[in-house]
Design a protein around this nucleic acid. Sequence first.
DNA 1: TGCTAGTCTGCAAACGATTGCACTCCTCGT
DNA 2: ACGAGGAGTGCAATCGTTTGCAGACTAGCA
Lengths: 331, 331
Amino acid sequence: MANARDVAKAAGVSVSTVSRALVAPDQVSDATRRRVVEAAERLGYRPNPVARGLRLGRTHAVGLIVPDLENPYFASVTKGVQARARAEGYAVFVADSDEDASAEPELIAGLAARVDGLVLASPRSDDAVLRAALDGTTAVLANRELAGLPSITLDDEDGVNQVLGHLRALGHRRVAFAAGPASSWSGNRRLAGLRAAAERLGDVELVDLGSFRPHFAGGFAAADHAVASGATAVFAFNDLMALGILDRLRARGVRVPQDLSVVGCDDVAVATLVSPALTTVHSPLGGLGRRAVDLLLARLRGSDAEPDATPLPVELVIRGSTGVPSTTRKP
Amino acid sequence: MANARDVAKAAGVSVSTVSRALVAPDQVSDATRRRVVEAAERLGYRPNPVARGLRLGRTHAVGLIVPDLENPYFASVTKGVQARARAEGYAVFVADSDEDASAEPELIAGLAARVDGLVLASPRSDDAVLRAALDGTTAVLANRELAGLPSITLDDEDGVNQVLGHLRALGHRRVAFAAGPASSWSGNRRLAGLRAAAERLGDVELVDLGSFRPHFAGGFAAADHAVASGATAVFAFNDLMALGILDRLRARGVRVPQDLSVVGCDDVAVATLVSPALTTVHSPLGGLGRRAVDLLLARLRGSDAEPDATPLPVELVIRGSTGVPSTTRKP
DNA sequence: TGCTAGTCTGCAAACGATTGCACTCCTCGT
DNA sequence: ACGAGGAGTGCAATCGTTTGCAGACTAGCA
């Protein structure tokens, strides 16, 4: 409410002195500074961030664009982004694209002038579209790589290797993959990683079940495909789909893990609460969000030392939804 | 990037004319307007919202403060707020208090000057603290009432009546309530509603298990209390706790619903995926967020007709976690 | 032809902060 | 005693818009 002029009047100084007393205390005499600070305190003065933003060209705000806030994956990323940004004195705009790639350019444009920089979590747009939309902005990608843009990712490749290794060790030789949105960069990378890993192992056959919506409902559909595929294990794009698969399999009377092992990805909180508990790739999602902010702020500050941007380690957590396939025991 | 001056130069007019051509097209001649619009188009000009905000005193942004973004309850509210705000041309700041009431005043103050209005979802602060913190701001409360402030709530009273009625009809005569944060207004209101309902029914005894953290972990603890209480049914503050209770009961070998019925609140997505599926009070959380924004924007626009602010209806969804208590069948 | 009314446009002042520059004092050194 | 330099302060410009006011020009009317 109170502005710098009010404080100036109360302290008997000029507006400039008020500003300096607060941002560059060593440029004003002790006596004056005390008077200003006291007046500011008394009036509850806070520099207006909008005005400051206009003058400085820095709003001290960042924007975050996510595909779906209700997806616990992005809820966690958002929480991480929010926490780190706040700790650094930045406010956070959040925009939800509703998994609609075509909405992203507009969201970016709408936020660009309001913020110092953007964090894009798992953007769904094409490379070219994304690049064009981000032209002229400072942005960091989370869970996506795009040449020329800073990004922070998870070590998906290691994750899929752990999954395939685990399943193979249990005796699985035919493993299905239920992919998420075709526009998911990490999903495609995981599929490629799985193919490479299967190739390398030599004795594991990979079945691509196709693309499903990254929610429970997508899992329901995927479950039927998985059963029909003859695979003894199914690896889902994310935990939500994996939970949907578990639910559908239970409804169909398919036993997990005896008849079909199920592996998720992300390790969202509910993964432990279903029965059997879900084997999944634990991913540091809050950390992903925090690191994205670190990277962004480093850019904004023009730091010489770019913070570490290597993929974040993930870890397979083995729970009850994976086991030895009953078919291998038959012979 | 391009500003009004660039456009003015390109169109051969003054900055004022550029502004008018875009915001008050009828005040400028057709020919000029076309030139300006064309130039703006060509340069990709978008009025800078920060500068506009400073001049107009309206930022076209709203702030949302929630206790925990990772809680699916607030994720849904946030999604609703975001969607409605965006549809109305408002950007959304999101701040997460981490269930820490003492952080709320600071979050409010930090956002106040950046936004036109605030939505506070389930704020945890005391009435007096909250009132002081919101002094001078335009705010709407979601899931909390405070005299003098507009608010939008769920029909908790009806919800608890439905729950208690359902349990009583099944034969339960001793029902436990596992409360959430003591600072939760809706939690306290539910407890009061339960007490009143129990009183009214006359033959149902209510056991207050105390206050737990509104997460899975809180449910683990509550489960043991519930078993010890001798109740045949337990009603949890929210679904997360209820899921925690289910998990803990399974681990202890307590059968649901034969030995203990469990009821949640909110109907978050995962409630259907556990086994047994959770009986819970379905709450329109996205709608809560959207209505909060409607209410806020109505205030900001000084509409004469205040939008409907009656509590949103909730509905008990009966699934597998409630049933006839085995104890009543013994005699 | 002159006057009025109306249309269109530009100037300049806001909005609230920050900051380069200039000015006024002091102090200190010679 | 005088000049240099430094400390402390204020003036005014600036960021990018919007908008009241006034000027310029046109058209219409008598």
